[in-house]
């Protein structure tokens, strides 16, 4: 039980970084980016390449995050923004993002092949917290997640840019009218979201003993479940959703069929949709298009 809880904490850490990154960018830019998982996968493989050449784990994760940020900003600049400028609706944009995801995913697959990879065994002392034993890489994972979450919270809450992001997610036209440079804020949101995707991807691959190109696709289930659980578009909700679902899926997986742990997240998603479609926190609610 305690062991499953430990795994749950690690999953929650990875999931919170990913789900918050996904939600933050969605709420600010109003584009549902299905290529998010492709960015995670690409960054995870960047970290793999770096580790193979001998870069230390910490540095590899940081560089993977950086690569994710650049990739995300590049995709937004090169593909999404031109389509948005043309007046493509939010529905059209989902098709644009899934096309991008498909292209990205398969380019990676063509490059690395269908095989399985591993970051290798991470050396370091295991940590014992009153019976809860965490390996060194699990501690790294949780540490990175806590740092990213703290930085995100402080940034959103106390910086001018963070305030502008929150304003933009609640009411874009009002934010623009108040002098917020929306283009720049949206660009920063894409960068930040990509950084989180990159870190999340590297951590996911670190946590998954052996990973392949498709590892990220299944992670999409939990990311979406966490995002809807907390309330579509709410970063705080996505964080709480991630923590709850991360622990819930691992604990349930320990007692049930392990391959089906993601299905637990899906069951929660269905339950939320039936009982409370707006999620736990619905800051911008579900029908924002009426405002935007």
């Amino acid at each position: 039980m305690l062991g499953a809880f430990g795994f749950g904490l690690v999953t929650a850490a990875i999931l919170s970084v990913s789900a918050v990154g996904f939600t933050l960018q969605y709420s600010v830019s109003n584009v549902l980016n299905l290529a998010f998982v492709s960015i995670m996968t690409a960054s995870g493989f960047v970290a793999y390449g770096l580790i193979v050449v001998g870069v230390t784990l910490w540095l590899a994760i940081a560089l993977a995050a950086l690569a994710g940020g650049l990739l995300s900003a590049l995709i937004n600049w090169g593909i999404y923004t031109p389509f948005i400028r043309r007046g493509t609706s939010t529905f059209g944009m989902v098709i644009v993002t899934i096309s991008t995801a498909l292209i990205g995913q398969n380019l990676i697959q063509a490059a690395v092949g269908p095989g399985f990879f591993s970051y290798g065994v991470v050396t370091g002392r295991a940590v014992n917290l009153g019976g809860l034993v965490l390996t060194a890489d699990q501690v790294v994972t949780i540490g990175v997640a806590v740092a990213v979450m703290a930085a995100t919270y402080l940034g959103l809450q106390y910086t001018k840019l963070g305030r502008a992001m929150r304003a933009l997610s609640v009411n874009p036209s009002l934010a623009r009218a108040c002098g917020v440079d929306t283009g720049r804020v949206v660009a920063v949101a894409w960068l930040a979201s990509g950084v989180m995707a990159g870190a999340g991807g590297a951590l996911l691959f670190l946590d998954t003993a052996t990973f392949s190109v498709t590892t990220g696709s299944y992670f999409l289930i939990v990311i979406i479940a966490a995002a809807v659980f907390g309330g579509v578009g709410s970063a705080k909700g996505a964080f709480l959703g991630a923590v709850i679902l991360g622990v819930a899926t691992e604990v349930a997986g320990a007692y049930w069929i392990p391959e089906l742990k993601d299905v637990v997240a899906f069951a929660v998603l269905v339950l939320v949709l039936l009982v409370r479609p707006r999620g736990l926190f619905s800051e911008i609610a579900t029908l924002r298009q009426a405002v935007g």
Binding site: L32, L34, T90, F91, M93, V94, I98, S217, Y218, L220, I221, I224, A225, V228, V232, E259, L260, D262, V263, F266, L269, L273, L274, P277, R278, T286, L287, R288, Q289
Partner: peptide, 21 residues
């Protein structure tokens, strides 16, 4: 259900991923 159309699409995508899983 009352989800925004784009999120609805992704939830349906998730349904198909879960089904094959």
């Amino acid at each position: 259900r009352r989800l925004r159309g784009d999120f609805q699409a992704v939830v349906l995508l998730v349904v198909s991923v879960v089904a094959s899983l």
